[in-house]
Computed example of a mutant assay.
Amino acid sequence: MRKTIMIVPILFLVLILGLSSIFVVDEREKALVLQFGQIKAVKEEPGLAFKIPFIQEVVKYDDRILSLDTDTIEVTPSDDRRLVVDAFARYRISDAVQFRQAVGVGGLRAAEDRLSSILNAQIRAVLGADQVTSDTILSEDRRVLMTRIRNQSRDLARSLGIEVVDVRLKQTNLPAQNLEATFARMRAEREREAADEIARGNEAAQRVRALADRTVVELVSDAEREAQITRGEADAERNAIFAEAFGADPEFFAFLRSLRAYENALMQGNSFMVMTPDSEFFEYLKQAERPQPAAPGRAAAQ
């Protein structure tokens, strides 16, 4: 009975020691076995692994691609036009042993602080280099600049046991104090372009008006010329008809002209007309007042 009581604690202690010596490595992790701060083993394959309980400890690091947002910084390209740049990077822990030796107990937080410093320094160096202007940074050529930043940061981050996978510029803006001046300059440029367009439009409108006025004058002149030609032809035709009518019956023609003269002379509004009674103007009126000879048939009837 006494032996049984002693065996139970021993078994319990053995179980605790056995469980303490086993650890699991996930497929998304890397593990280091440390003994008194010294690296004794590296476990990169997923599965079960063993360590000396109470003497050795296990430190695990994420083996996936991680993301890091850098602090917003100001850069000055070669054209002295300051820009505010915000970037982010993708990285992974490529060498767990070197990573542990570089950052120590600080872990991932310390590594990201040092990586952020490397990225900011390379961003300033690349974007502030000669022949790199703000227009280049804001154009499609920024991809070449981002590749250059990634390659230079990768070389420096390799000493931390980190592989920089990619670097991207999220935002590239002007500082707040420069925005108003930039907007004013852009507004002035747009207004100048608008004024140029208006001037060109007015010039084109003047040309169109001048062409239209000349066309109107030409059309009116042609129309008046055609009208004068038609009027002359009509007058000639009328005179020919009058001449023909006069030649056929001169007395009737003279009578018709006298009637027209009476009509024009005796119109309403003519105040006075002074002439002698025996004037030739009333020749046909005098003839109308003379008694007309009766017809032969009517005289016989009377």
Score class of each variant (00 low, 15 high):
192 R>P: 01
185 R>G: 11
222 D>P: 08
210 A>S: 07
196 D>Q: 14
205 A>W: 05
173 N>Q: 12
186 M>I: 09
180 E>G: 11
168 R>N: 13
170 K>I: 14
176 A>D: 11
199 A>W: 06
188 A>R: 01
192 R>M: 04
216 V>N: 06
203 E>A: 09
193 E>A: 08
214 R>Q: 14
197 E>F: 06
179 L>Y: 02
201 G>I: 13
205 A>Y: 05
198 I>C: 03
196 D>R: 14
177 Q>I: 15
216 V>I: 12
199 A>D: 06
194 A>C: 01
207 R>Y: 08
171 Q>L: 15
224 E>T: 07
188 A>S: 01
203 E>S: 06
205 A>H: 04
185 R>L: 15
210 A>W: 02
195 A>W: 00
170 K>E: 10
172 T>E: 12
209 R>H: 06
213 D>M: 14
220 V>R: 06
201 G>C: 10
177 Q>P: 13
215 T>Q: 13
224 E>N: 09
185 R>H: 09
187 R>D: 15
208 V>C: 03
192 R>A: 03
197 E>D: 12
182 T>F: 13
223 A>W: 11
208 V>W: 03
177 Q>D: 15
224 E>H: 06
194 A>R: 02
205 A>T: 05
169 L>Q: 00
217 V>F: 07
221 S>P: 06
210 A>V: 11
210 A>E: 09
205 A>N: 05
176 A>N: 05
209 R>I: 15
191 E>H: 02
206 Q>Y: 09
206 Q>F: 09
217 V>E: 05
203 E>M: 07
199 A>G: 04
223 A>G: 08
223 A>S: 10
173 N>F: 13
221 S>W: 11
206 Q>I: 15
186 M>Y: 08
217 V>W: 05
212 A>N: 08
167 V>Q: 01
169 L>H: 01
197 E>Y: 05
195 A>T: 01
210 A>L: 11
201 G>F: 11
214 R>A: 15
179 L>H: 01
167 V>C: 03
172 T>F: 12
180 E>F: 13
167 V>K: 00
182 T>P: 03
171 Q>I: 15
224 E>L: 10
172 T>P: 10
220 V>E: 09
223 A>C: 08
181 A>P: 05
183 F>M: 13
198 I>N: 04
207 R>S: 11
224 E>F: 10
172 T>N: 11
